[in-house]
């Protein structure tokens, strides 16, 4: 049998360890570079210091970019939570023409190559003579964030029984009361998890953003521009450390909130391995995006 012999098990284990090393090594390295005391970006570092942290914190460009990223992320998350929940309810509760296509369409913005989504939105914006602004960034981000909320909420809805809603109606609650006191509490954590993931997705998105932002910089665009021009690299490193931490925090929280559906594993495209698979969302094309 494959992998039954002692040596083959060891070989597989070594391979897995190497893959782990490969996956984490760059992340550790880039985090260390934030503590590089020197202006020169070479290895080995001459020491470890936090001397660039304060100047980065007081850099107005960084602050503006961070502020724009936060606003864009929050607004896009809001739109995505609303539209994603609506779509999830429609798909879960009703049978209608094109129902099978909903998941596929929602995932398109991140399943298609980023430049295509970006260019399409770009031509939409110029065709309608909109000004490139916070609004256009939010339109772009919300479009590809909807799918994360949709996947999370749909996974939760599939695990809840519609009899609870019927019971609530039988007891005299109207539609709003049923939604407020029965349905919403059931989906609340999944909704929040979807929102967190949407925010994480929005916060470090760059390809679509370059096509939908005007002159302003979101944080990733600021980083990209400065890496390319080789300017202020020590501060870039500090911002990068911050971005890693900020983008992982929502994901960690979301994971705790959705232990039941395990949708996180499928939230970004790939299907769910592991024991939760049987009950997890059948994440058709659950989407993938840088």
């Amino acid at each position: 049998m494959i992998g039954s012999g002692r040596w083959s098990r060891i070989a597989f284990a070594v391979w897995a360890a190497l893959i782990m090393l490969f996956l984490f090594f760059p992340i550790v390295i880039i985090m260390l570079y934030a503590f590089n005391p020197s202006n020169v970006q070479s290895w080995p570092l001459s020491g470890l210091s936090t001397r660039w942290f304060s100047s980065t914190w007081h850099n107005t460009e960084v602050r503006q970019a961070l502020w724009l990223s936060l606003r864009a992320g929050l607004l896009a998350t809001g739109v995505a939570m609303l539209l994603g929940t609506m779509a999830a309810f429609a798909v879960d509760r009703f049978r209608f023409f094109g129902r099978e296509a909903v998941s596929l369409v929602l995932v398109l913005p991140i399943a298609l190559p980023g430049i295509i989504t970006g260019m399409a939105l770009n031509s939409f914006i110029s065709f309608n003579s909109l000004t490139f602004s916070l609004l256009t960034i939010v339109i772009g981000h919300a479009t590809f964030c909807i799918v994360t909320v949709y996947n999370n909420v749909l996974a939760r809805l599939r695990r809840t029984q519609s009899s609870l809603v019927e019971a609530s109606m039988d007891l005299g609650a109207d539609g709003w009361q049923t939604f407020r006191y029965v349905t919403l509490p059931m989906i609340a954590t999944a909704l929040v998890a979807g929102g967190l993931l949407a925010f994480a997705l929005s916060f470090d998105e760059i390809v679509v953003t370059t096509f939908t932002a005007g002159a302003q910089n979101t944080l990733p665009i600021w980083i990209f521009a400065h890496i390319r021009n080789g300017q202020q690299l020590p501060q870039v490193n500090v911002v990068v450390l911050f971005v890693i931490l900020v983008s992982l925090l929502p994901v960690a929280l979301a994971q705790r909130l959705t232990r039941d559906t395990g949708v996180l594993r499928s939230g970004r495209g790939a299907p769910a391995p592991g024991p939760a698979r049987a009950t997890a969302a059948p994440a058709i094309g659950a989407g993938a995006a840088p």
Partner: peptide, 14 residues
Amino acid sequence: LIPLWSSYLVRVFA
């Protein structure tokens, strides 16, 4: 999952 969700741009820069 951690590398999957940590910033794409950051990992390229690394």
